[in-house]
Design a protein around this nucleic acid. Structure first.
Length: 863
RNA sequence: GGGCGUAUAGCUCAGCGGUAGAGCGCUCGCCUCACACGCGAGAAGUCCCUGGUUCGAACCCAGGUACGCCCA
């Protein structure tokens, strides 16, 4: 079947068939493969590596749509693009997935042992780790799949080791006993950023401690079991209630230990009783206070989440049981004075959901203040720009108060620390195992985010000076979600400056978070998730991309399936518009700005404006606005008006007119396909293949420019006026119960020459013929000039009486409104001249309309 | 506790100083030779509340209310 016959047959755009075919064509043409030696200014986007455990969700789909739009657009502009894909090893998440598999067989990772377990995780990764990258392909993303990286693969790991060693050499990395966020079920420390805070209803217990030499002091705590580990009581130095007690000793309930009463400004006078028990082993503030006062840190709860031997008879109880025992004990002894309901914020482990146990343990930390400094400067100086701009506040607030980063994790899946322990407990930090016997590598692994912090340069081969690194570092835009600005973006900027010689990207585009339709978080566990692959099946990839880009703005949005459906409609519309033109155009026509008639000049003017507008919107990350610009140009201006206007010419006998319409329409289609391609790559590529005299793929073609398209504001204004007149005419037909195509005649009054020249347009779109006769009959005013159409028809005015009356009322009201504005001396005096002039024009126009309508009504009532 | 954001048509959202907009839904009329996944027309809004700035406020400012998110 030849292509023309094929096109004739396909009356709908069927996405699934097209998508697989077109994607294969791109692959075959090597569209995706980046070459550092190719010409063109470099342009690079690093895909935020999804977890290997992940499957494509709405956030990925949106994120991917934005990045592919940018990559395709820049590729068409002639840039040498690289979109670097890959996945993250996601320490805790991945380890948990495999542990769950083991649990199904009734075993734990400890049964397997570390080596076998890690091997098993690798096996899992090899078999299913690329799922999400494969899913991205359904969306049509043009990443360089041949360069897929994994944060633990052989080419990536050396960078991680080297950065750790260098940070240590520069004195940033150190080992310390410190109070960390401990996740009991995961048996590991986690960073501050992996802690979620939630409000919890607790009880505030007020407990009396006896004071040596008489009296007592009452403190408030929500965790009475930690009393066992108290090392002091602190009061505010200026609190008169306790001034006399400072320096005395208190007796810890239950264990009878003597502890000092100290003064510290960090105590809140207003909170509880104003006296604070100091338990450095279980509370971050207490830990600081304890260090400053040289107090030791005791632990009532161990790393296993069980009670320690501070109270020997409770040893081995869970923390919860310890809590109950303590409350019971204090009640019986009479030392428990008050139990007050208390709602406060408590930290939970993001991964396991367990309440965080702040515990002392020996961990590796990275001091961040010096790394943060230049990273703050590059954002303040706009060397790195956030979009929307306000997002930089999230970054700066965190960076300016940055704290040491606990980088070690007690997991099995991850990058082992390049730290080697000698039998005597001393250690060295270096990549290679030291010479000699007995060296053991640290059993800790690095925080997953440590390795992803190096993503923009480790993927390009750093520390080797590869051609890729030279070409594509720094990259251009990072597209990601707001939730990982600090977790990931900040750390890439810091390590990029520290190790790769500069910022990793110049723009950070933060895409919207898509909520479920009911406003809740979109998540599988809540059952509120919508699978983007289902949307692609149902509506097509182009429609899904279009809908997501339309939803995406500077704020969080609720998922609206209607926007996807709108995209489906647009793809179908464009498909059919192209069919109309290709099947009916002059066979010799080529895409040319042939402005024979004013309608042609009008659509060319609109096309040029649309090209400029969309290009600007892409440049400014205004993707939602771009969907609107393209939609209304394609659907409303091109299809509803231009194509309707030229149908008669395409079917008609006037060769020159047919040729002009064909050439202009072909040009509009050609340019529109290019404009829309970054957003909807499949349907545009498919249609491109049908265009005459166009070789090659659209994806490789030049992005449209407006340079060679003539602008014609006069034609634009004239046709704009005709469009308004025809809309008025159609309304009149409806009101008078005339059919849409019933032939009508009309006369013109006023400044009519320009309008008379457009008689064919009026005939084509309004089914109305201009005749030379006295101006009579219901009026349709033309907005741009003083001309008025008078529609002729027997009894027409009678049918329109209500409508005329209504319009008279409206015209009077508008005229009055404008008059009263002009009656305001201050308005005339202070408003800009053109605003005042416009108001004068409105008075004139509505007064004229009103007079005309009034005359018609009078004539009607008289008759 | 601190910060950020949002409240506009039935729904989802644009507009962000000069005559209230779109898509969907709804009503009416059309199987008009590209598309019924279509065409034409229409109804529908104290632009959250109260003050202020301004010739003029949905838009700027202040306060309030409601909701969402982030940080500690």
């Amino acid at each position: 079947m030849d292509r023309r016959a094929e096109l004739e047959e396909r009356t709908r755009y069927e996405a699934p068939e097209v998508e697989s075919r077109i994607f294969a064509a791109w692959q075959q043409a090597d569209l995706f493969t980046a070459n550092p030696d190719a010409p063109g200014e470099p342009y690079c986007i690093q895909l935020p590596p999804p977890n290997v455990t992940g499957s494509l969700h709405m956030g990925h789909a949106l994120n991917g749509s934005v990045q592919d739009l940018l990559i395709r657009w820049r590729r068409m502009q002639g840039r040498n693009v690289l979109w670097q894909p890959g996945t993250d090893h996601a320490g805790i998440a991945t380890q948990m997935v495999v542990e769950r598999q083991l649990a199904a067989d009734g075993i734990t990772r400890h049964d397997l042992g570390r080596e076998a377990f890690v091997e098993r995780v690798w096996g899992w990764k090899e078999s299913t780790g690329s799922t999400i990258i494969e899913q991205y392909k359904r969306l049509g993303t043009s990443m360089d799949y041949s360069r897929e990286r994994f944060t633990m693969d052989d080419r990536y790991a050396p960078a991680v080791q080297q950065v750790f060693v260098e940070l240590h050499e520069r004195g940033y990395i150190y080992r310390d006993n410190y109070l960390v966020n401990w996740s009991v079920p995961l048996a590991t420390a986690i960073s501050d950023l992996e802690v979620e805070h939630k409000d919890v209803d607790d009880v505030l217990y007020e407990v009396a401690y006896a004071v040596e030499g008489g009296g007592e002091i009452v403190i408030a705590t929500v965790r009475p079991a930690t009393i066992l580990a108290d090392v002091a009581i602190a009061v505010h130095p200026e609190d008169p209630r306790y001034a006399a007690m400072i320096g005395k000793q208190a007796i810890v309930p239950m264990v009878g230990r003597r502890i000092p009463i100290i003064a510290d400004e960090r105590v809140e006078i207003e909170f509880g009783t104003g006296a604070l028990k100091i338990t450095p082993g279980h509370d971050p503030v207490d830990f600081e206070v304890g260090r400053d006062h040289g107090l030791e840190a005791l632990s009532a709860i161990g790393l296993d989440g069980k009670m320690t031997d501070l109270m020997p008879e409770w040893e081995g109880l869970t923390a919860e049981e310890g809590h109950e025992r303590a409350v019971e004990h204090l009640r019986q002894s009479g030392e428990l004075r008050e139990e007050i309901p208390y709602r406060h914020s408590v930290g939970f482990c993001q991964r396991s959901g367990a309440r965080i146990e702040p515990l002392i343990s020996l961990q590796w930390f990275c001091r961040m203040d010096e790394l943060a400094k230049p990273a703050i400067d590059v954002v303040k100086s706009k060397e790195v720009r956030f979009h929307p701009e306000r997002m930089e506040k999230i970054y700066l607030d965190w960076m300016e108060a940055i704290r040491p980063w606990c980088v070690s994790r007690q997991l099995w899946w991850g990058h082992r620390l390049p730290v080697w322990f000698a039998p005597d407990g001393s250690y060295v930090v270096q990549v290679e195992r030291p010479e000699g016997d007995g060296w053991e590598q640290s059993t800790d692994v690095l925080d997953t985010w440590f390795s992803s912090a190096l993503w923009p340069y480790a993927t390009l081969g750093w520390p080797d000076q590869t051609p890729e690194l030279a070409k594509w570092y720094p990259g251009d835009v990072l597209v990601t979600g707001r939730d990982i600005i600090n977790l990931w973006v900040a750390r890439m900027i810091m390590t990029g400056i520290a190790f790769a010689g500069g910022i990793p990207f110049t723009d950070v585009y933060i895409n919207s978070t898509i909520q479920a339709a009911d406003g809740r978080r979109m998540s599988k566990s809540l059952g509120t998730g919508v699978d983007p692959l289902d949307l692609i099946d149902q509506y097509g990839a182009d429609a899904t991309r279009y809908g997501l880009l339309k939803m995406c703005s500077t704020q969080d949005v609720r998922f609206a399936e209607g926007m996807i459906d709108e995209g489906r409609g647009l793809a179908n519309k464009l498909f059919n518009a192209t069919r109309l033109v290709l099947l009916n155009a002059d066979p010799d026509a080529t895409p040319t700005p042939n402005g024979l008639l004013s309608a042609d000049r009008w659509i060319l003017d609109r096309l040029a404006a649309t090209i400029d507008e969309v290009t600007g919107q892409y440049e400014e990350f205004q993707f939602s606005a771009a969907t609107k610009t393209l939609y209304s140009f394609i659907w409303n201006e091109f299809c509803d008006w231009y194509l309707e206007a030229i149908k008669a010419r395409l079917y008609g006998d006037d060769a020159a007119s047919k040729r002009a319409a064909s050439e202009t329409a072909l040009l509009v289609i050609e340019r529109t396909l290019g404009l829309l391609h970054p957003m909807c790559p499949f349907v545009t590529e498919e249609l491109w293949s049908f265009l005459p005299q166009r070789g090659g793929l659209l994806a490789f073609s030049a992005f449209p420019t407006s340079e060679d398209i003539p602008r014609d504001p006069a034609a634009a204004a004239t046709v704009g006026a005709i469009i308004e007149a025809i809309t008025g005419l159609r309304r009149l037909r409806q009101d008078a119960d005339l059919g849409p195509k019933a032939p009508l005649t009309a006369t013109l009054s006023g400044d009519a020459d320009a309008v008379r020249a457009e008689a064919p347009l009026l005939a084509a779109l309004g089914a109305i013929e201009l005749v030379d006769a006295a101006a009579d009959g219901p009026a349709v005013p033309l907005p741009a000039g003083a001309a008025t159409l008078h529609i002729q028809g027997d009894g027409l005015a009678g049918k329109l009486r209500d409508r005329l009356a209504k319009r008279l009322e409206e015209a009077r009201a508008e005229a009055k409104k404008a008059e009263s504005k002009l009656g305001n001396a201050k308005f005339v005096e202070r408003a800009p001249e053109e605003v005042v002039a416009e108001e004068r024009e409105r008075v004139e126009r509505f007064t004229r309309d009103a007079a005309e309508l009034e005359a018609q009504l009078v004539a009607l009532d008289a008759g």
